[in-house]
């Protein structure tokens, strides 16, 4: 095994709790993230699962250096980036991108898709306008959209297509790590499946590592190689995915796994689906 792409050691982030309407005074501190450590290899998916307030999104923001940690260390590709600022930090920022939950809120409604996807190219890969347009076309086809759609605005797309645009924008900088913060939570199940398949294909083709943040256990079980379970700012359990779901060790994880609504289709259903999928009938009629 080569050195991990991302190493997080004893990461903590506290927030001051203030009370009072006009004159706020500090009444205490809470650790939103409390002594969190994990590693992520190239091409690997690490799921971070937890309920609201567990600190999973704060962890993502710390890793991306959008928030400063109060303690601990973040190493990216062997370099300590915990205290980097300015140009060196921007250099590393290109190599790690984020895809947000809400494709409706995270795209500028006044920009065309070409501008949205092309913006990171301006920063990270200066070149001619024609070269940029060509690259945007490549990126769009990579995520299953057509280059012809580049002149359109976000409102002309469905939720699943907007999430594809968000993914294309993240890919524009050719990152080695993408932090996915609840990327499919706002999507219908059938569209969720399309986006999860796309993320999977991109990983296989480009070797991108994902830090996959979600509250959805069924989704994390599907996408992650390893899973970290967070509760009240701490990782209570971190294990290989199959092992974690088969034999959850921590009582909190056991509770989460037990509460999952599960679907158990009969073998007949599986057979119907396998035949439909493998028969060449898997593609729509037109």
């Amino acid at each position: 095994m080569s050195a991990p792409l991302l190493e997080v050691e004893h990461l903590s982030r506290g927030f001051t709790v203030r009370r009072g309407l006009l004159v706020a005074r500090a009444v205490g501190r809470v650790n939103a993230v409390d002594d969190v450590s994990f590693t992520l290899a190239r091409g690997e998916t690490l799921g971070i699962v937890g309920e609201s307030g567990s600190g999973k999104s704060t962890t993502a923001r710390l890793v991306l250096r959008l928030l400063d940690p109060s303690a601990g260390r973040i190493r990216f590709d062997g370099t300590d980036i915990t205290a980097l600022t300015g140009a060196p930090l921007r250099h590393f920022r290109r190599r790690m991108q984020i895809v947000f939950q809400d494709p409706f809120a995270s795209l500028d409604p006044r920009q065309t898709v070409e501008q949205i996807v092309g913006e990171p190219l301006l920063l990270h890969r200066p070149g001619s306008a024609a070269a940029r347009r060509e690259r945007v076309g490549e990126l769009l086809s990579l995520v299953g959209l057509s280059a012809a759609q580049a002149r359109r605005y976000p409102h002309e797309f469905s939720g699943g297509q907007r999430q594809r645009i968000g993914i294309a924008r993240a890919l524009a900088a050719e990152p080695e790590l993408i932090v996915c913060d609840e990327p499919v939570s706002a999507l219908d199940v059938s569209i969720q499946a399309q986006v999860l398949n796309l993320l999977r294909d991109l990983q296989d083709r480009l070797g991108i590592a994902y830090l996959f943040i979600t509250h959805d256990l069924a989704v994390v079980r599907h996408v992650a190689h390893r899973v970290a379970v967070m509760r009240q700012g701490r990782i209570v359990e971190l294990a290989e995915t199959a092992a974690l779901f088969a034999r959850p060790a921590d009582p909190y994880t056991q509770g989460l796994v037990a509460a999952m609504p599960e679907v158990h289709p009969a073998p007949t259903i599986g057979r119907r689906l396998a035949v439909i999928a493998g028969s060449g009938l898997g593609a729509p009629a037109r």
């Binding site: 059938s190 499946a193 999860l196 999977r200 439909i276 593609a283």
Partner: peptide, 21 residues
């Protein structure tokens, strides 16, 4: 059938989901 297949299931971890296009 597609809805059933779209939901990630215990039986097929990390496989391709049979998405409804």
């Amino acid at each position: 059938l597609g809805l059933i297949a779209s939901a990630p299931q215990a039986a097929a971890p990390r496989g391709r989901l049979l998405a409804i296009e």
